[in-house]
Amino acid sequence: MRSIETSNDELFHHLHTDGLLMLANCWDGGSARVAAAAGATALATSSAAVAWAHGFADGSHLPVDLLLQAARGIGRVSGLPLSVDIEDGYGDDPAAVATLVRQLAEAGVVGINIEDGSGPVDLLCRKIAAARGAAEQAGVRLYLNVRTDVYLRGLAPAGERVAETIRRAALYREAGASGLFVPGLAQEDEIAAVAQAVALPLNVMALPTLPPPARLRELGVRRLSAGSAIGEAGWSQVQQAVREFLATGRVTPGALGYGAINALMVA
């Protein structure tokens, strides 16, 4: 068990209190090294990118042991605060969620994302409480970022989404949430309304229609996540390179060559 003074949990909480924490979501030790070298102040995984890196589809299909392997791999190469996306907790049993959180805490993880999806709100509340209890037993002040899919999945009519998001946020906060993640929230007036009404740091996901970071800060957003976008960009480049090779026997060099990439991996 790491003491509060020497661990990253307090630092990660502090990063949500002022300004805008920007998380370029990674998926393994290599992508974590790239993010850190680019100036990241903390790291967070993308559930989709982690799943894809292991040949699984996103949506809680990844075996838990591979999730833990990814977290440990990132922790091996970086001392930055790390948050791990556990989707819906990989099951409906709050006790199993608690076990997973304990294992992640032992691997040095100081934050998690957990989501409601189309599942019952009360079930997620029980999972949040179980995760909070497990973290406390492990001696970690876990940053429990709770994702609600009110916007992403259209769980309420367009005119009722702000109110439904605020309603769920209050329940999640009472259960033990540290922050609220609302992917799909993009309109300035709605962002401001949620940020002002919710007593939790607000996290939004990068979208083409989203205001720029400086404006997000003004609206009260405290965390901006890339989500799966960086992973999507990476896989798009891989597909393009493979197709080019199969068609021509050549691959157009990327911005980083072998030497630069290899140097990042031994930093």
Rank of each mutant, 00 (worst) to 15 (best):
G154H: 08
A131H: 07
S78Q: 14
A214W: 12
R161H: 05
A49T: 07
V34T: 14
Q69E: 14
E136T: 13
Y172Q: 02
G39S: 08
W52N: 04
W27M: 00
I86R: 00
G184C: 02
A37C: 10
T41F: 15
W235Y: 12
R223A: 09
E188C: 05
V194W: 05
I166H: 02
S78D: 13
N25I: 00
V140F: 01
A192H: 11
G179P: 04
V77A: 03
L43R: 07
E160Y: 04
L171Y: 10
E190T: 12
G75F: 09
A37M: 14
T99P: 04
G179R: 13
P253L: 03
P212S: 09
P157R: 01
A170T: 11
A131F: 10
Y151N: 03
E190Y: 04
I74M: 04
L219K: 10
S7F: 11
E164S: 07
Q69V: 09
V77N: 06
L21W: 03
R222M: 08
G259N: 12
H54S: 06
K127E: 08
D189P: 03
L185G: 02
I230S: 01
L256D: 12
M22E: 14
L20M: 12
Q103G: 14
L20E: 07
A197H: 07
A186L: 13
Y143R: 00
G227P: 02
L216Q: 03
V140K: 05
L144N: 01
L43P: 07
A42S: 12
N262L: 14
S60M: 11
L264I: 04
G119F: 13
A51L: 04
L246F: 11
L62G: 02
R132W: 03
G79T: 09
E5Y: 14
V221Y: 11
G133T: 09
R76E: 14
L67C: 00
G249I: 10
Q239K: 14
L210W: 05
G227V: 00
L23C: 09
I191K: 03
A40L: 09
A267M: 10
V251N: 09
H16Q: 07
V251T: 13
G259E: 14
Q196S: 15
N203D: 06
S3L: 15
G119N: 12
L67Y: 02
E136W: 11
G30L: 14
E10I: 15
D58R: 06
G119Y: 11
V221L: 02
L100W: 06
R132V: 08
L82H: 07
V146M: 09
H14T: 15
A48R: 10
Q69C: 12
E218I: 13
T248H: 04
V238M: 00
E232P: 03
G73Y: 08
P201C: 06
G30S: 15
S83Y: 01
P253W: 10
G59K: 01
H16S: 01
V109H: 06
S83K: 02
A53K: 10
L202D: 01
